[in-house]
Design a protein around this nucleic acid. Sequence first.
DNA 1: CGTTTCTTTGAATCCGGTCAAGGTCCGTGG
DNA 2: CCACGGACCTTGACCGGATTCAAAGAAACG
Lengths: 214, 214
Amino acid sequence: MSEQAFNELPSSRCMDAFGPIGVRMHFAAEEEIYAQEEDADLIYQVLEGAVRTSRLLSDGRRQIGDFYYPGELFGMEPGDKHSFSADALGDCTILAAKRSAVRHCGDQRERLEDLIWKATTQELARTQEHLFVLGRRGACEKVASFLMSAAKRARSDLTPLAMSRQDIADYLGLTIETVSRTLTQLQSDGLVRFAGYRNFQVVRPAGLSRLVAA
Amino acid sequence: MSEQAFNELPSSRCMDAFGPIGVRMHFAAEEEIYAQEEDADLIYQVLEGAVRTSRLLSDGRRQIGDFYYPGELFGMEPGDKHSFSADALGDCTILAAKRSAVRHCGDQRERLEDLIWKATTQELARTQEHLFVLGRRGACEKVASFLMSAAKRARSDLTPLAMSRQDIADYLGLTIETVSRTLTQLQSDGLVRFAGYRNFQVVRPAGLSRLVAA
DNA sequence: CGTTTCTTTGAATCCGGTCAAGGTCCGTGG
DNA sequence: CCACGGACCTTGACCGGATTCAAAGAAACG
């Protein structure tokens, strides 16, 4: 497991969102945080590391829902069961809080309910954006838009990728080979430059965003 | 425009969800209810007819977000601007309410806030399901899952389709030709039978759902 | 330094897209 | 009531991009 590059970032110490009802937990790489169909009475915040949510099909195909980074909340679900599973991309620290505990939380209650509302609507926005990327085919467009949003999140010039090629493929609805070929092509077109498998920098932002097209 | 088949359904008179702050409106087929980037201070409920939300790209491609039917709420948005536009699939009656009016709504307030919360989380669930369908490629799977969810919504044996082939294509991320070919194939495989362009019945439910694979 | 795992590359195949007719349905007007 | 016209849908032939299968190449790890 080679998650080092990502975990050794200046792991932006971020705020504990849940206050007194939050419980700190640690997960090793690839460890499961919650499973599909499990009761969804907890909500989570990433403190360090990164998390992915995914849904597995009977025939082995996998759809990744999203990736979550320090500061972000995940685990909000429409129903009372998780429709995706969540697991640690690398070693990570997670804060968990009982959803049902919010109502017995006195002065914090309003703030927490607002927090959950915001996180849920933002989740909706992310999902819509993801949908939009999957809908319009074209491997180049998909990969380019993935790289752009990754780069936007990074503060440094060099953008780290917390996930494997397979993860990217399952996120975009492509095969790992297509993702790899497309990355190679984007690189030889001079739009991005990779430093190892899991770090890259955008060389020509305008060129990249031209591929995406709003 | 041949929306008759759908509009002449026993148009399930459904409850007015908004009470005193709701305003009844009527839209003709293809008329725009709200536009992309427009302020999102209203929420809507379909009373009669059907509605589609969509997002247009600069190059003409279109992604349909979802279809809404009598009783369902739409127009909830993560931000304060609409990220999709909405328009009438056929002639329809819509109920609209100012989101900001909810807080001045006295005894109804709690109920309305709960309603909006439920609608938003359900919207999230629908979007995730849609994402899931788009992610796993295969025209057959996509079309089959579309037909299945349409059939599940219908009370009658004969399922009406409120939308055109082009709408289905833009919903599933396929071309109209592929949708058409796939429908023909499903029919000649004896899984469904079409009566005209916009009505079908499921002949072998098990066969259809086998194509979808959870 | 060898082994394992992940990634890249190559060649052949296949599914869906594109382009171009042809067919069907439906509303209109003779 | 039937003929016409236009919009929508289906079908066919061809093409291209993504998948598949297979193997070689790079990193990470002990």
